[in-house]
């Protein structure tokens, strides 16, 4: 039986998929801009943030409309609530991409400081997590979602290594302190993006299985 609410839920799914696509692109571009010191690419990321904000509001309004008009329960309710939270997380991921892009402009003109090699690993891993968390949302795939939770540790470890390298760098070349702190801030943003992808993955588990796994160690 096709229900009225199915159409609304289908629309909502399509909308959140679009937000995800735009955010994923912003993250990928911002990371690429850091690695290649590409200020123009960074500018494009900054320009895309307004669109993400608008889409976020649109998705939220859609969720509120469904809650008010259809009073969904069980799987329908879990889907709408999960989308409401995922939407919020995606928007924050977009903001983090914007922050990374801002740092790229600030790095320009700074001395030729090499990026710690682990940043690349970290960034690739975080990007992968973002891609996979979106796939987990669209496919309602709790198995994939659980895998993403595990990957977060890899990013956290890489971040620790980068931090140590940056501290050592500051001691060795105190004159580079400013640029090194900026690089540190970029890695922090990348780490946060991976954290947000983990949040999204946890919301997918709730959406499909009804269990809130947040703040619980991985089984």
């Amino acid at each position: 039986m096709t229900r009225h609410i199915d159409r609304q839920i289908g629309n909502l799914k399509e909308k959140i998929r679009r937000v995800g696509t735009v955010v994923e692109e912003a993250i990928s571009k911002s990371i690429s801009a850091v690695i290649n010191r590409d200020v123009q690419l960074a500018q494009r990321v900054l320009a895309s943030d307004d669109a993400i904000d608008r889409m976020e509001v649109e998705v939220e309004e859609e969720c509120l409309k469904i809650l008010a008009l259809y009073q969904p329960v069980a799987a329908d309710l879990r889907f709408v609530v999960a989308v409401l939270k995922i939407n919020n997380d995606l928007e924050r991921m977009g903001d983090l991409a914007k922050n990374i892009a801002k740092r790229v402009a600030q790095l320009e003109g700074a001395g030729p400081v090499d990026l710690p090699p682990e940043i690349r690993t970290m960034a690739m891993q975080a990007e992968e997590m973002v891609r996979e968390c979106l796939a987990a949302v669209i496919d309602a795939d709790p198995v994939l979602a659980r895998r993403i939770r595990e990957q977060d540790d890899v990013v956290d470890q890489a971040r620790q290594k980068v931090r140590k390298r940056i501290l050592a760098g500051i001691k060795e070349h105190p004159e580079n302190v400013e640029v090194l702190l900026r690089i540190n801030s970029i890695t922090k943003h990348i780490e946060r993006i991976a954290d947000m992808a983990t949040n999204v993955a946890e919301d997918v588990i709730y959406m499909v299985e009804g269990d809130i796994v947040r703040h619980r160690p991985e089984e």
Binding site: D6, N11, D76, D141, V208
Partner: peptide, 15 residues
């Protein structure tokens, strides 16, 4: 709702 085949219904209960 789109009629294109989607990989899975996001609201499906545990398999």
């Amino acid at each position: 709702m789109s009629t294109s085949p989607s990989p899975a219904d996001p609201r499906q209960p545990p398999p």
